[in-house]
């Protein structure tokens, strides 16, 4: 579904990603680890197509189509969706309106209401999006928007950061629904790429492959739990050895 080859990305004049390769098939969830500033968000935002992130080399193919050069909204309509770590507040635009606008299947008020209930966001439906939301509310509202959007590839930027333990369980549940985890593996179509700094989300969401992004390069690929254990016990300093 997503095929990234030799991707290099510049922000302003600085190259952040250097020749990244990544492959995600339909139905798979992958996890991206890495210390702060390693380029995780850059990778996600480049896939989403934000103009600030300039592809200087390599390719990104989605469903077989080269999407480098496509504007954000076209990528969204092709089936890519992202939840942001710190989304902006859009004054005067209500949560409900965004949900209605982004729902691919033109969901009615009722089904949007049901989803909001599931995400425990009913009270925020008529509030201005992200304005005065708590950390957990922002994360859940991002996931709720993705659920309405129903993307084939969901890019989740630290969906659990700054969230208390009770909320993480709910967030895990929402992600599992978003990524069709309740379906048998062979029936899952949706793919996910999750950035996690702490790895907490892995207690709730299963993933097939993990990567460590370090200084703009993927230096390690393997079982996500194993990677997480290594990071937990030895820290990212251990990764520095591999990076050499």
């Amino acid at each position: 579904m997503l095929e990234i080859k030799q991707l290099s990305v510049k922000v302003r004049d600085r190259e952040i990603l250097h020749g990244v390769n990544l492959n995600i098939k339909a139905g798979e969830t992958h996890v991206l680890f890495g210390p702060n500033g390693s380029g995780k968000t850059t990778l996600l935002m480049t896939i989403m197509g934000l103009p600030k992130y300039r592809v200087t080399k390599g390719s990104i193919k989605f469903k077989g189509k080269d999407i480098v050069g496509l504007p954000i909204d076209e990528r969204a309509r092709l089936g890519i969706g992202a939840s942001l770590q710190r989304p902006p507040a859009v004054r005067g635009v209500k949560t409900r309106e965004i949900l209605t606008a982004c729902s691919r299947e033109q969901m009615g008020r009722e089904s949007i209401g049901r989803m909001a209930e599931k995400a425990n966001l009913t009270d925020l439906m008529d509030r201005e999006i992200n304005y005065g939301f708590s950390g957990g509310e922002i994360k859940r509202s991002e996931l709720l928007q993705l659920m309405a959007q129903g993307p084939d590839l969901a890019l989740l930027d630290e969906p659990e950061s700054g969230v208390d333990l009770v909320s993480i369980a709910l967030i895990g549940q929402l992600i599992n629904e978003l990524l069709e985890k309740e379906h048998p593996i062979r029936n899952r179509r949706r793919a996910g790429l999750i950035i996690t700094h702490t790895g907490h989300i892995l207690d709730y969401v299963n993933a097939r492959t993990g990567y460590v992004l370090f200084d703009g390069r993927i230096i390690c690929e393997g079982d996500p739990r194993e990677i997480l254990e290594t990071i937990k016990s030895k820290g990212y300093e251990e990764c520095r050895k591999c990076a050499r």
Binding site: P71, A76, P88
Partner: peptide, 29 residues
């Protein structure tokens, strides 16, 4: 209009002019 807000709405599938219109409408509300 904050470009960041336009891009945010575009990520949800709104075309640039739709996103801009939604922000202006919201502003006037």
């Amino acid at each position: 209009i904050a470009e960041e807000e336009v891009e945010y709405l575009m990520m949800r599938g709104l075309a640039r002019d739709e996103a801009t219109a939604a922000i202006v409408r919201g502003f006037l509300r």
